[in-house]
Design a protein around this nucleic acid. Sequence first.
DNA 1: CCGCATCCGTTTCGATACTG
DNA 2: CAGTATCGAAACGGATGCGG
Lengths: 223, 223
Amino acid sequence: MPRTHERRSYQQFCPISRSLDLLGERWTILIVRELAAGPRRYTDLRDHLPGMWSNLLAQRLRDLEAAGIVRRAELPPPAARTVYELTPRGRELVPVLYELARFGLAYLDLPTEDQPLLPHLLPEGIRAMALIEALPSRPFVAHLALDVGDYTITVSTTGAPLVERIRVREGRPAGADVTLRGSLVEMLWVRRGDASLDATNITIEGSPRHVAALRDLFDLHER
Amino acid sequence: MPRTHERRSYQQFCPISRSLDLLGERWTILIVRELAAGPRRYTDLRDHLPGMWSNLLAQRLRDLEAAGIVRRAELPPPAARTVYELTPRGRELVPVLYELARFGLAYLDLPTEDQPLLPHLLPEGIRAMALIEALPSRPFVAHLALDVGDYTITVSTTGAPLVERIRVREGRPAGADVTLRGSLVEMLWVRRGDASLDATNITIEGSPRHVAALRDLFDLHER
DNA sequence: CCGCATCCGTTTCGATACTG
DNA sequence: CAGTATCGAAACGGATGCGG
């Protein structure tokens, strides 16, 4: 089994191919996606990665640990359990996840029975709709009152990488500068340019400045 | 050929897994990397991707074409040739390449005989060392007089995605605001935090503002 | 139950050879 | 130059087993 402990490598002096040496195999980046939301137990990962078989998951976690991207941690009692979490270096992959997600938006079909809308994927999916190019000069808090639930967007103006200035979490904020109401799918349509904002039932309320900031951030405009 | 035309898919309603459905197979992203530098002929691609076998290259190009990421174009006579190039949608992958490259810098070992320094990979590699978080408020032109050759960095202040505000091309500029002299590997050391700038032979010349801008852009600082 | 390991058929990949 | 055909090797999909 551990026959050639040397993993298959592209053997090029190139930072992209080095990344792919570490991340390029099937399922690897999806494991990082799961851990980007926080520490997870082995079985949590298994449940969120249907189609991935246990043997492969164990293998990938070992590989990621060896690469310094993931580490094991033991939760203190009570409920002492092994969890996996990203190392600081692993968290540097968040911008990669964000850019992959941005690109994938264009190819995202509507949720079907085969591909149901999974709640735990929504915060990162919503963040993918936001544009780091349109980060405002002042922080604000937005409330997305969507058909699929309430989400809080917190935009700050400091911190690198840029994508981490945008935080999305489940639940409604204590106080919001601006509130968007509508359906997630309609928001996705407008974001992709498939529909004009005024052809949807999306409404945005707040001070003009904050409304403009939220519309810029998610590229929600009339055409 | 008894092909299941249905490609293997992660079957999740998630933009990251959709991207990986299209890009996740071996060699695919490296083909995009090659085409990001401009249109290329089949044999150019083959020569720049050692270890990738012709049958796979043909297969991947077909897949990328079907996904709308790559298209074929016929060059007009003389020298009529088929070339492959990125579609507009394919060019949206440039930020993904940039973030993968940024991540991979930390894992990049020094060039060896096995992994020689390939000139055509250097512009994108140099850009990976630049930080979109540190884009200046005014444009400037820098000249990198490196041991491996001369490169021109052109930084603009408009354009999305952000990474495309940084352009790196071979050759020296007609006029530069700031000039950096040194070796590529030393620059990489400092950029990764493995060495302090003053422990290297790197020199930066220009007006204080432009020197600061270049140092910020490449995170070249004393520790 | 959690956290894996073992086993086996299928798919993909690596490598060489060959063709319009 | 621009690809196809072929075949053994490695990786992956899928099910089951097993110690703590």
